[in-house]
Computed example of a mutant assay.
Amino acid sequence: MYLRPGTVVVIVGATLTGLSTVIVGLRYYCRHFLMGSVGPSDHLMFVALVLTWGNFVVNYYQDQTSGRFRPSFLRDPAKRPGIEASVRGSLISWWVYRMGYNLALCFVKLSILFFYRAIASHRTFRRFVYATIGFVCVYTFGVTVASAFQCENPSDSWNTTGYFSQFDRDPTTKRPKFKCYDPIRLWVFSAAVNLLSDVIILLLPIPALLSLRVPMSKRLALIGIFSIGIMAIIASSIRMWVMYLWSQSPSASARYGGDLLLWGVVETNSGIISASVPFLRLLFVGRQKEERGVTQRRLDASPPKPMGQAGLSINQPLEKPHEIDTWALFETEKKSGEGSPGWQPFITVPESLNSGSRGSTLLEPAQLPHSTV
């Protein structure tokens, strides 16, 4: 069965955006009910999800309008009057999509960066995070404004007369004079900067994670969790290649437009999913603790050893020391303004004291045991 590219975009968009909605919902559940702390990074991701649904609606409208004509109709002046309304709708949807796509990616990146800011106390690392936040905000603002004002009069962006004139093979055809710039350079630049910022955000915490004084296996596990975002980088790289093909000519733009939208959907949802999945570990922490508690109760209920056996060694600890859980960095976001001058970039707390119950993030170092790495 043949499916038009626009239909594939709609199906993939509905599937991935629906999956992103479920994962973000579980993230809120973990953060609010299991941890008792919902921060700015969660709200920023929610805004990114709303914008992604908005882009899905735009993509659906693009599929409905572009499905009413074939690319070959654009070269036939006799068929243009019958498809003019559909072409205008498609051009308007593209104009809206360019702004919504960049804004959605911006909020995904800001969510990740605000999470970095919350768990980092090292001054140099925090400065890099703030600089990256500023960079993402500035270039997103610039690209969004430039997309909105591609033409001096924004309505000229969806003027069908100017669009049809690109497909006229007669060089003597009189084309309308609009004050518009060629948007291809802007879109290629935007795709390249998005890819660059994805790589920077992925690499930003790696030096701090490598410097942790914990076993190498835990360091590699943490790096693996943070590296889930490589999925978004792969999608962004493929979209960059499709962008190159799409920008070759007006005919190529019509041919690869669906592929460009498809990989934009994959890129945005990959960022949302990869940035939210690490928080879902809290769903399994409680189960592991419950099973550990059952095992401990069974050990405590075992019959005492008969008299005459060797007693406790003088060097044997009377109490089992707290187990340090490095994963707690996902559960110890600091409140704005609270300082921890003696703590290093990432903080660990005893596993028995972390997010198994509400309010567990409000640990006071002076009263409860803690360890810094």
Rank of each mutant, 00 (worst) to 15 (best):
L212N: 02
L222D: 01
F346P: 04
F135Y: 12
L245N: 03
D259W: 03
Q296P: 07
Y97E: 05
A328C: 15
C151F: 03
T326Q: 11
P306R: 05
G356Y: 12
F164E: 00
K179P: 04
L329M: 15
Y244S: 11
V136A: 02
L113R: 05
V242T: 01
V57F: 13
L74V: 00
I223M: 14
Q288R: 15
R88E: 15
H43L: 07
F141M: 13
I233D: 01
H370Y: 15
L222T: 06
F115V: 01
D300F: 07
P71N: 01
D63Y: 09
S66Q: 08
T295G: 11
D42L: 07
G100T: 05
V136Q: 01
W327L: 14
N153D: 15
W343S: 14
S211Q: 11
P341R: 05
V50L: 05
G6H: 01
Q64W: 08
R80H: 02
T361Q: 13
Q150R: 13
Q367I: 10
V96L: 12
A191F: 00
L195G: 05
S37T: 07
G264I: 01
V266A: 06
K320P: 07
R68T: 06
W94P: 02
F226D: 05
V12G: 01
D300T: 05
A192F: 06
I206M: 13
W94C: 04
A148S: 06
R68D: 11
V87Y: 00
V22K: 10
D259M: 11
A104C: 05
